[in-house]
Nucleic acid binder design. Structure first.
Lengths: 221, 221
DNA sequence: CGTGAATTTGACTGACATCAACTCAGGTGG
DNA sequence: CCACCTGAGTTGATGTCAGTCAAATTCACG
């Protein structure tokens, strides 16, 4: 339940109803899609366990990774506006989600003003997150992008009670590069540079942040 | 009222109430902010007349133009998640908006399921729009970005009943460059190239699209 | 161990940025 | 009415950061 960060004003009775909606759990194996671009939208999903990437694909070859989702985050909000998903959500490891049928959620929102308000904040936060990515893609150097990426993961793990300075990258260099608008090689070179500066260690997948401030200063510049 | 594209199922009585909320009009002179980053969020705004740009500013020098809004589009949704705006909305010409006090909108949404559903689709569409911008910034060449930008404007003017092939750019080259992650000079060079190819004419501000297909093919590549 | 995928590293290239000069339109004041 | 100014836009010369191509290395897994 904490995934939705429900405000305290919601009553136990309300929670029961929400619990009811959230009851259906789904397991997704590593590499498998939770949903695919083109499929009919019908539910949101709350990540319970594991990690996902969401991939936007416009027509032909062009693919863009829109974000990486970890436990407690919501998948599928981009589908609300249209009959069909325009993104795919792929599990980066064996994962588990709760399905939230959208029509049932909507009727519940009408009855629970505080849940409605919470839901709107959640969508708005997604918009805000994307603004940050646009800033990153629009005006940061390769080094700044990777630093911002690491700091973002760091903050999110910290918010979930994990170490903000030591975590495992669940995605490949290719995924990171695609997300940050860089090539694999550039991402790799930046990591090597950070390592040489003693800002991080333990690559490739296992990351220890040694000098958080250096990374922050780099982004702030 | 057509700005919100209200579904037909809403009754006249409902409309009266919405009309009530939307009654307050505000005029904004060219170059003036409708709201500024840091101000307390309290309302959404529906653009009635004119054009705006929304600028995201993180801390110090970094500014990123997030989008350009024209009549019929909604401003301020990024503020819902937080006490204060993180964007500024600046009028690109003398403009007029309707203020939509957010708390009143929220209570109305609870009462009108179809309006609620419409509002969610609107936020989702904004998320989807930003995905497209991320694709553009993450993996398109300078030429493709400018072409995509022109085609996007073209479609939006067409949807409003204006000519899709002849319109005026309300924003400067600097604004366009910032939005597309390019410099002024690069934007200018791309326009010149398009002009030389006879794909467009009538620069600088007045744009006639002569070969829409060429632009589309360029993006689709 | 051996095989293929992921990652790193190096040499070279190219697209866009940077720096700088120039053009043009609009507004102002003499 | 025109000289002047200012800011937007264009164009050219040069520089650089990240992409491309290629090879080496490490890692995961049978």
């Amino acid at each position: 339940m904490q995934e939705l960060c429900l405000p305290a004003v919601i009553t136990d009775q309300d929670l029961d109803r929400l619990e009811n909606i959230l009851s259906k759990r789904i397991r997704i194996a590593r590499g498998e899609p939770l949903y695919r671009a083109g499929e009919v939208f019908s539910s949101l999903f709350a990540v319970r366990l594991g990690h996902f990437k969401t991939v936007y694909s416009e027509g032909h070859a062009t693919k863009q990774i829109i974000g990486f989702q970890m436990s407690g985050e919501i998948l599928g909000m981009e589908g609300i506006s249209r009959p069909r998903h325009k993104c795919s959500a792929i599990a980066l490891e064996d994962s588990e989600v709760c399905e939230i049928p959208y029509t049932r959620l909507e009727s519940l929102l009408s009855e629970l003003p505080s849940l409605q308000s919470h839901f709107h904040r959640m969508m708005s936060r997604e918009i805000d997150r994307e603004h940050q990515v646009m800033l990153l893609l629009g005006s940061m150097s390769a080094d700044q992008r990777v630093a911002a990426f690491l700091l973002n993961l760091s903050r999110r793990y910290e918010a979930r009670g994990f170490s903000p300075l030591h975590f495992v990258l669940r995605m490949t260099r290719e995924d990171i590069g695609n997300y940050l608008g860089l090539t694999i090689e550039s991402v790799s070179r930046v990591f090597s540079r950070f390592k040489k500066n003693d800002w991080i260690e333990g690559l490739p997948r296992d990351v220890k942040i040694l000098d958080r401030k250096a990374l922050e200063d780099l982004c702030a510049y």
